[in-house]
Amino acid sequence: MPEILDQARTQVLGDGVGLDEAGVLAVLNLPDEHLPAALQLAHDVRMRWCGPEVEVEGIVSLKTGGCPEDCHFCSQSGLFTSPVRSVWLDIPSLVEAAKQTAKTGATEFCIVAAVRGPDARLMKQMREGVAAIKAEVDIQVAASLGMLSQEQVDDLVDMGVHRYNHNLETCRSYFPNVVTTHSWEERWETLRMVRDSGMEVCCGGILGLGETVEQRAEFAAQLAELNPHEVPLNFLNPRPGTPLGDRPVVEGKDALRAIAAFRLAMPRTILRYAGGREITLGDLGTRDGLLGGINAVIVGNYLTTLGRPATADLDLLDELKMPVKALSATL
């Protein structure tokens, strides 16, 4: 057994203290033959510190495309030649999407907008939309609307949005290679306000943007410092027309190593499979990740791309004897 896994067994599994950056890096550098042991340990950590439940979430795009920012992975930036056009979802369709999500047994419904930060029109749409969902659907509402002012944070709390997603996307040292229209620190500032407001913080990122393994470890350590309630882990799905459109997808084993390493850095967080797992890991890898530290999934489609059918994930959870987290348990 490699030394780092022995250390993690005592420190993370035993004491619930996450690995630091050097420890994460050691896990990311484990040779293939030790990957199963790393995944097993990450799974044990998840079972011990989070339990067997899996949190299921659906997401929907309230405002798609036409974003003024230049995140190089994103098909919704208006600055690239991506074919994604700007479109708004109306409130009846938003409520319908929440209903579809609730039908899968999901407890979380996240409303997302492709913006730098919300304007008055978007905040008004949110207020009406969240109220309409709460009146008709039994589900917790989360939001992801970019960078916020303090007033907007307060407004979202007032609407009853219980969790806010704002991804740091990648580590601080690599961020300027991925985004030039705003800074990592500006994102951090929004996260700080969200945390102070009492809303749950959801913050993760995308692997495979061209960052080094060292930078992946840096990212895990920075997330651990933030200590978010939830960390969505995406793997780059290279989008036509974006600056990263020709990048290779993350190799399956590297993705699994990252899942184990992120879990060992953050034993208690909700570690969610987000976008890109279908192309990076396929069906088999989806199972390996759920047995290697993941304890939450996005079911159904994503914002601009499609996922596998919700039933495929729910059947898998059933087979793995992992109960879907119930609403009553989260309220």
Partner: peptide, 21 residues
Amino acid sequence: LEPPRYCHRCRRRMKVQVLPV
């Protein structure tokens, strides 16, 4: 794993809304 983006009849970019289902 993607919706269509261009109209196959006229090549115009379409307004595409992806929903959970």
